[in-house]
């Protein structure tokens, strides 16, 4: 079954980026505690992948955490310029130091500047006067998955922690024990 949902996106035009890193600055300031109290691009959830001499400027947002790095990393040649595949990748992964809290190493993820009251658009977009970043809400069709039962959620969490084999073992053990008691 498909349903409509609103997807918040940022359109990135790498040709318009001037490499000023204002997006990194304001992102880190917005997410500081208290808000705007400090700046540190190393904490930003957007980074500009830059190689000025190769004319490469790619703003990338922090996405999902992944425990393992990719097996093979390809190179793309676009319009005569060679990009690492990682230049477009949002993942917080072991192969690079992007999108990790400098103190704890914990992964960072773009939250579109979620706040109360809601901002009109993420601040990186507002601060990008070059219009390399443009906020866009669009409607997309998404497969609606049935809501999982509470027990399923709990079991899945246990499985993530200990692995299915152990969980199944435990369930079997407990059902045998319960059978004896009843």
């Amino acid at each position: 079954m498909k349903t409509e949902k609103t997807v918040k996106t940022i359109k990135i035009d790498v040709d318009k980026c001037n490499g000023c890193r204002a997006c990194e600055v304001v992102c880190s300031a917005f997410h500081a505690q208290p808000r705007y109290s400090s700046v540190n691009p190393a904490r930003a959830r957007i980074r500009v992948i830059r190689d000025p001499l190769a004319d490469i400027f790619v703003p990338v947002y922090a996405g999902e955490y992944t425990a393992a790095e990719c097996a093979g990393r390809d190179r793309y040649t676009i319009d005569g310029k060679q990009y690492e595949e990682c230049a477009f990748c949002r993942s917080v992964c072991p192969s690079r130091d992007l999108f990790k809290e400098p103190d704890s190493g914990l992964p960072l993820k773009c939250d579109m500047c979620e706040s109360d009251p809601t901002l009109q658009e993420p601040l990186c977009v507002t601060w990008c006067l070059a219009d390399a970043l443009v906020y866009e809400e669009r409607t997309a069709l998404a497969e609606k998955a049935p809501a999982p039962a509470d027990v399923d959620v709990g079991l899945e969490a246990l499985a993530n922690e200990h692995g299915w084999a152990k969980v199944l073992d435990a369930v079997t053990r407990m059902s045998v024990k319960m059978g004896r008691e009843s």
Binding site: N18, G19, C20, R21, A22, V25, P52, L53, A54, D55, G80, K81, W127, L129, A130
Partner: peptide, 21 residues
């Protein structure tokens, strides 16, 4: 090109012979 955190574009990458800066 811009300097750090500046929306102005006073500079430029110049490529004399190749597409690269």
């Amino acid at each position: 090109l811009s300097c750090h955190n500046c929306p102005l574009k006073c500079g430029a990458a110049i490529s004399v012979d190749t597409r690269l800066c």
